[in-house]
Amino acid sequence: MGSGHGTELNLTLKVWRQKNTKASGSFETHQLTGISTDMSFLEMFDVLNEKLIHEGKEAIAFDHDCREGICGMCSMYINGRPHGPKNGVTTCQLHMRSFKNGDTIVVEPWRSAAFPVIKDLAVDRGAFDRIIASGGYVSVNTGNARDANNILIPKDAADEAFGAAACIGCGACVAACKNGSAMLFVSAKVSQLALLPQGQVERKARVLKMVAAMDEEGFGNCTNTGACEAECPKGISLENIARMNRELTSAALTYTK
């Protein structure tokens, strides 16, 4: 573990710089001094970017939005792990107290053919949006708000669906997987709806379409290493992947259209 409250760190940062999608990037080394252990990892990047701007250099592009672990935008591959050395947190929730004075930190973008680098550490995760658009929805009549508990849902199903719905679409699962597979993400989305009564109407068509969309985006194939589950900031379980395998197999066997 790092140092205590209010301590300051001197760090060496190796950051991936890449002009655009087509350019081939390379690492750039930066020295940082007086980084407070109370800072988040992104705040440390803010400090670095301020410094670069003062020096008349171009700031490092990186994604972020909520900075409180709910939007899934912050995507940094830190010292060989998505979202850095701590389990169950996003990069914005990672703090500099997780590092030691004198550390060298290597920061890379998510690396996946399906997530092209836009610039530096920012990648295009539009592939996830297209997978969702292919089937990750339920068709319902809109109108007045329904009464709560109109449709009864068993507690365990509700809990499991809720667990799957916690996925924030960050893509750490893809980044962590040695095969670049997106199965954890897609299975979370498939499960969330397959477990609930509202999702039954499109259940079979949904899994067929979403898996087809996933395969089309060029993600790799799952070999059950479990790296995704271990690195997922929201604790999405491998059980979801098994469920998706079941759902897809039974849909392929029985769906007629």
Binding site: K14, Y77, N79, G80, V106, E108, A113, A114, G218
Partner: peptide, 9 residues
């Protein structure tokens, strides 16, 4: 093919 650029670390 799904990861054309390898991670450095």
């Amino acid at each position: 093919k799904a990861r054309p650029v390898a991670y450095a670390k």
